[in-house]
Amino acid sequence: MSDAKLAPNLPQWMLDHANRYIASGGTEGHLYKISPPGYGDLTVPALLLTTVGRKSGEKYIFPLFYGKTGDSYIIVASKGGAPEHPGWYRNLVANPEVEIQVGTLKTKARARTVTGEERARLWEKAVEFWPPYADYAKKTDREIPVVVLDPVN
């Protein structure tokens, strides 16, 4: 992943978080402590997602909160409830072959957007690990994509 770089236009807290994660080799930053307004103190698991830019062809790293389903990882394309999907999601729709770092584990994965009953079930899991997703869903007209990252050996 040495040719990957942090995505442009990330907010400062995400940059700080991702830089600490990368610099520590994943021993720091994989559990992110945050106090979103109205939720108290939360400790949320975080991974680093590397996608290939759909326009640039360059590799970009995004720090994201995640959950688990079996041996796979759940991420949510919420963008805080913004009207459009985040860039990382548009990238993985164009090219579902991604790289992830979960703590010190680095692996390749294939991304898939889930629908129907699977989405409903995994959305509930997502709201458990990051309760603000429920608020984000109320702020937007789009259905927020739930993505499963299946590790590829």
Score class of each variant (00 low, 15 high):
69 T>D: 14
111 A>R: 04
61 I>H: 06
126 A>R: 03
143 E>D: 14
60 Y>F: 15
36 P>L: 02
53 G>R: 08
107 T>V: 11
14 M>Q: 15
56 S>I: 08
50 T>L: 04
134 A>R: 13
77 A>P: 02
102 V>S: 03
39 Y>W: 13
27 T>N: 08
83 P>F: 06
67 G>F: 09
74 I>Y: 06
2 S>Q: 14
96 P>D: 12
67 G>I: 05
152 V>M: 13
114 V>W: 12
71 D>F: 04
24 S>K: 07
106 K>W: 00
66 Y>F: 14
74 I>A: 11
83 P>N: 09
73 Y>L: 11
88 W>L: 01
131 P>A: 03
61 I>R: 13
30 H>L: 10
114 V>G: 07
117 E>D: 15
16 D>S: 09
20 R>L: 14
134 A>D: 10
104 T>G: 00
6 L>F: 02
148 V>H: 09
3 D>I: 07
52 V>A: 13
32 Y>A: 12
92 L>H: 03
150 D>G: 00
57 G>W: 04
115 T>P: 00
55 K>E: 14
136 Y>N: 04
149 L>W: 05
116 G>Q: 09
132 P>C: 07
36 P>D: 06
132 P>Y: 01
87 G>A: 15
10 L>K: 10
34 I>E: 08
38 G>T: 07
115 T>A: 13
65 F>K: 02
124 E>Q: 14
2 S>H: 13
